[in-house]
Design a protein around this nucleic acid. Structure first.
Lengths: 170, 170
DNA sequence: TTGTTTTTGTTATAGTATCACAAATTGAGT
DNA sequence: ACTCAATTTGTGATACTATAACAAAAACAA
């Protein structure tokens, strides 16, 4: 029999936080309470979240509004440890999906749906990635980020907009 | 004998504006005076420029400060016609380098140096691009933008920072 | 305990972007 | 040229994103 989805999710978040904690320790740093709280909100979100949305969600969950400055600092911290990613196309943030496996966290692609704001993070195909790296090197540059961002529209939104288009053209 | 570089540059900008104008016409639109002025500033810049920097540069060149709203509208317009690109990692804008050849303007890579803000726009290797498209499609998404942005550090900056590192570690 | 480092808070402010509505300009048809 | 409609630009207010500078608190080691 299946567990309740809600509880499963909470358990998964707990596990992720555990992994994150270990990742920080391995790198001579630590996941403080605040950092952990921020990360847990992002882990629970099903789409990209802005810093100020995060403040509101923090207030909902922990009954206290952290100052923007602190939130941005913590976001910077989490980004620098690759525990979260910034979606530049939207100035929003998502939790890393590879959080259980940070040691061999290779390059990933962030497929950002500009309509529903959902982000799909999947490992980047090795061949493609090497081809990219090669091209970038040839152009006299060195890649800094392990996350390549793509502005997309997801199939779900695509279908919705198509049916919408149909309905208005009818 | 070489022409003065400055004049050559101005001539190139004029040609680019001409091409842009034709591109707009072909697409049933037009490059108004304001749009042309904004585009010419971006064509003359050697790095990515923010909307508000653009206002200042506009004032320098045309002795009048356009309102932010107008600038953003015009930037949106130029982006939608692919005449300029937005560098999401920096919230800045650059003129398209393929402006003379918009009809077969394929996918390009924007190599953004996070240190000096310069952006190198080069055509994306076809094989790599198709590989990418394939992966994106497999993940159930459709790519929206023809510009793939990479946060990099250019060789020039890399050397500078290395010599700097050497000097402080000495 | 004391001093040091790291983290978080506070206040103010800088920088990026858009809304809603008004005015001006352009262009087609008469 | 005149009128209407569509497009473009202007205006003022305001929302959203992000950081600077300095203070307080917490963590930690000597």
């Amino acid at each position: 029999m299946m567990k309740k989805p809600g509880l499963t999710k909470i358990n998964n978040i707990e596990k992720s936080l555990q992994s994150a904690e270990e990742h920080c320790q391995r790198n001579g740093s630590k996941l403080t309470k605040k950092r952990r709280q921020i990360l847990s909100i992002l882990l629970g979100a099903d789409r990209a979240i802005s810093a100020y949305e995060l403040i509101e969600l923090f207030n909902d969950q922990f009954e206290h509004k952290p100052p923007a400055m602190s939130v941005y600092r913590i976001l910077d911290y989490l980004v620098s440890f690759d525990l979260i990613h910034k979606v530049n196309a939207a100035n929003k943030f998502i939790a890393c999906t590879q959080i259980h496996n940070m040691e061999n966290h290779g390059a990933t692609q962030l497929l950002f749906c500009q309509q529903c704001q959902q982000v799909q993070e999947t490992p980047l195909n090795t061949t493609v990635y090497e081809g990219l790296l090669d091209e970038i090197k040839k152009s006299g540059n060195q890649l800094c980020s392990q996350q390549i961002e793509f502005t997309c529209i997801c199939n779900a939104c695509l279908e919705n907009s198509q049916s919408y288009t149909k309905s208005i053209s009818a």
